[in-house]
Simulated scan of single mutants.
Amino acid sequence: MRILQCKLTTIEALLGTASNNKALHSEFIASHAPDAPSREEEIAAVGVDEVIEKGTTVFSRNEDGRPILWDYQIKGFFKDACGVLRKVKGTKSSKIKAYKKEIDGLIFVQERQILVQTAEELTSCQRPLRANTPQGEREGLANSEEIAAGAVLEFSILVMSDDLVPAVKEWLSYGKLRGLGQWRNSGKGRFLCEILEERAAEFSDILD
């Protein structure tokens, strides 16, 4: 059992993922976070008064009003990374069979809220959306809060199986190619990871 103390530094702008429509967040987004202690905690952290457009995705905020990511967003990134890398021959991920179950049950981000440390003002990223629907091709405009490259996120990861540690490091390295947040396919949210510390842990440490 190992604990990895990680420092992520974004190399591309990071976009918010939470809906600014609190009712929508209540019914859909928060319900997709089964490990969240309470739906109310999620909803209360969504949105900023200055952003009024329904379709805007934003960053959740902590009690000081600073942007955060939630622990399960990092785990979601791990699932995304592993799901792709397991198809690449010779990767650590290719040896993991029931990878979602392994990540859910054996890998934990210890901080509930992860502060996005930045000295830059938050801006807005707009981009066109195109979709083929039964009514024909439709176009729209997506809008997201954006934090400039150079933001720092620090958190610790508990890996309960030593065999999974190399895979976790592989996923964190994959962040250089595919990152966190909205519009990842364009390169948004890419990051570099530094392992500040790696140490052994005992199950008794978790229970204390």
Rank of each mutant, 00 (worst) to 15 (best):
A33K: 07
A33R: 08
A33C: 05
P34L: 02
D35V: 03
A36P: 04
S38I: 03
R39F: 11
E40D: 12
E41R: 10
E41P: 00
E41K: 12
E41A: 12
E42W: 13
E42L: 15
I43V: 12
I43G: 04
I43A: 01
A44K: 10
A44P: 04
A45D: 03
A45Q: 11
A45K: 09
G47I: 08
G47F: 01
V48A: 14
V48G: 07
D49C: 10
D49S: 15
V51D: 10
V51C: 03
V51Y: 11
V51K: 11
I52P: 03
E53Y: 08
E53K: 03
K54G: 09
K54C: 01
G55P: 15
G55I: 10
T56A: 15
T56I: 03
T56W: 01
F59K: 05
F59R: 07
S60P: 15
S60I: 06
R61T: 11
N62V: 14
N62K: 14
D64L: 15
D64F: 13
G65Q: 08
R66S: 14
P67W: 05
I68Y: 07
L69C: 01
L69E: 02
L69P: 05
L69G: 00
L69W: 13
W70T: 04
D71L: 01
Y72L: 07
Y72R: 13
Q73Y: 08
Q73M: 07
Q73W: 04
K75E: 01
G76M: 04
G76D: 11
F77T: 06
F78G: 05
K79D: 09
D80Q: 10
D80H: 10
D80G: 05
C82M: 10
C82D: 02
C82E: 02
